[in-house]
Design a protein around this nucleic acid. Sequence first.
DNA 1: TTAGGTTTCG
Length: 584
Amino acid sequence: MPVQLLKIIKGESETPLPSHLQKEDLKHLQEGFDHTNKYFQGIVILSYPLKKLGDGTDFLKIVLQDLDDLCSRINSINILIYGKMAEDCAKVIRHGDTFVVAGFKLAKSPTAREDGRHGCHLEVSEEEGSAIYSVAPKYAYTTLNRLKDGTVVNLYGIVKFFKPPYVSKGTDYCSVVTLVDPSNVKLTCTLFNGNLDSLPKIYKVGDIVRFHRIKIREYNGQMQGITSAGFASLTFDGTVGAPVVPRTSSKAYTFMDEEQKIIEELRVWAATNLSVSGPAAKLSGVQPMLYFDLTCQLVGKAKVDGSSFLLKVWDGTRCPYPTWKVPVEARDLEGEKVVLHQLRNLTVDILVYDNHVQLAKSLKIGSFLRIYSIHTKQASSDNEDVSHIEFHLHGGTCYGRGIGVLPESNPDVKELKTFLESVDLADSQNMEGMGSLELDGTFNSVTDLESHLQRCQQLSVTVLTDHQDLNNTKLKTVLNSTAPQQYRIRAKLRTYKPQKLYQSIKLHCSKCNSLTEVPDGDDTDFILQGSAVTAPNPELHNTSWYDSVMWTTQDQKQRKIAIHFVKHDEMLQQPEDTLLMIEG
DNA sequence: TTAGGTTTCG
């Protein structure tokens, strides 16, 4: 007979126990009786920690109480479980569970005198051909509009907002989840667990969760959910028509036709009543200055400094802007060198900070990630004329900022994998042949470049009146020709130098003939700061073209400040028309 | 205990 380990059955009325089994009362469990086709049912009132016996066998002792015989002086019995069955049982057992034990061996209990329980105990193991069934309690679910302070409830909800699990400042991982249900009430739950796997596996807004044993408390005038002992969750894809497969870390859970129906109904309600379009984007669709969620594959990672960490990722598309490359030591970069090189034009560098560093470090190369609320920032460095895009995952968890690892079974991952396999790597590598075009960072792929060229060759409304004798030549031809040549081109302006107007003119020193940049705002600040530390020179006061006044500040620094009122035709103007010069 | 939704030091 195949051993059935902890099969979950729902409610006594529909108990699908083998038909040859008959229920046995506690008082009939006596030596000398035939118990071959009998089972005993009771409630778990005690369970001891799992132990290993001298010969290495797992051993678990639990105590079951007979609910039908509560009035008897002796209404509980020790159950001794051996081997794999003990191990399996220990994983799922919970105080208050109803267990059914069949195929047991009955023996005298050596501890009956001390523990006051039944004179015999039941021994069960796979070898004995035993079976243990856990009878699922009938769960009641509370809608979000009926939650009461101080209760522990079971509930369903559609994820409206979530923070993927992150390392809290205490000892646990934390995940914050806001749910909504057809009662149109919102509930924000703060979930803690030392085991990352025990928190709900939520991947996107719109997922549906079932929480068991969540504690309800009032906080700031609103109901709040918080993990309580025995908290368990199931998470489902919220898409109408998707398979109803729960994501969970529980070894045993109840999930029957009724639950399936609830999920399907919630999906339909959400589809008609909620908008769940998140800020997801592909790298090809990013814009500067936005926050977005990226589903991608990890290609490389490297430590940068104490508070930041680099992730190199790709999603098979190409970012339409020049992207930032974070400088790191080659020896610090983890990842397949060949792959990193092959994908160098398709990967982007994401710098993650502070609390995300620990999680980022633990990520495995090749894994699929969803990085939530990445910030794209436009910036240019001193030696670049063209600005680039930087990707930051700032510290903190506002707006659900964080990193989630997606399993290969996730539908979005399956789609991404198929797409990544279809990407022609030769195309992205050919980009290097584009020379200066590539350096300007303007084209993203050969296809992109060609479509740009086609658009550039289209007739425009601007009519050029000069050089009519020359035909238009493609940029490609120009680039492949030897200088000097004369061409006429029609092209779209993608970038220009200098980027800033003040870079168009230079300061010239007539003595040494040197040329320097006109200082920009920051440099001017610096120069002015320098002069602020020198006190005004009294000899330069009250000249023919200005009147000066000077005073000393009252603060500790006792700074000397001079104001020069500039005259016009040796006359002072009306105050509102006067040009002032300030020193100090 | 932790966090308790509402974007940034880089």
